[in-house]
Amino acid sequence: MDMFLYMDVDSGLHRLDPRTKLILMFMSFTIAVMFMNIIILGSLLILVTVYGFSGRILSNLKRIRIVLMMITLFSLLIWTIARASDDKVFIFSLEGLFYGIMIALKTNAMIISGMVFLSTTKIEEIAEGLVKFRVPYRGAFAFATAIRLVPMIVATSYTIIQAQKSRGLDLDTGNILQKTRKYLPLMIPTFISVIRSTNIFSMALESKGFGYSNKRTNYLKLTMGAGDYFMLFLGALVLAAAIFIKVNPDIYRDFVRQFPWSEFSAGYYNWSI
């Protein structure tokens, strides 16, 4: 089983400097957090997906398709019911449904953006990129290791689930509560295995000289090239445009007036279809 999220493809996106990709990711996060508008967030989602497509890593999204689907489903369902609205049909409301769409777009855009970053950037590059941003090496390494740990835990729990299924544990039937109760005891062997291997892992780290000094050379050569500056420029342009409409109430109000169903942020909120 493939344990890493990183996909070893030779694409322009892969060759970008990790710093560029990190900044672009944070730019997309900023836009996602800044707006509560279906059209803008929808465009962001498309933009992020195209960005991922250029790195040929969208197949990696298959691995988290359940997460993406669940988020979409739950936000649609919960907000349709939970959102306060003047015209409710029974407990459902159309406004809630649209609000749910907005939340789903926002969350999925951020998750996909993060996924694109992790799928195109080696763990070592992430660590080194952070170091270049003046994060201390140990901290950067710890962060990168945490990312590495996730697939390891998944793989271990997968084996454990198989082992328990073989003993007759029926994990496939029952409602969510019953299923949760069946899965809970499996946490014990999972944690014990993970703790054991992280212990060996840390011994192996030190045995290879980790922490010998604060100065460290790097085999990976990080250089900002023309492509990096171009992508940063594009990103900055999009972000600037986003900020521009956000800080100009008149422009934004005009825009919202055309699509009142898409907007949910305070001050502009005037929902109707």
Binding site: S197, K208, G209, R216, N218, Y219
Partner: peptide, 24 residues
């Protein structure tokens, strides 16, 4: 399994020398 942690073979081997501040 537990003592390998890098993304590829080259980086795995480079890890030790990097710690000792060996030139690239």
């Amino acid at each position: 399994e537990a003592q390998l942690f890098s993304t590829n073979v080259n980086l795995e081997i480079a890890f030790g020398p990097e710690n000792f501040h060996i030139e690239r």
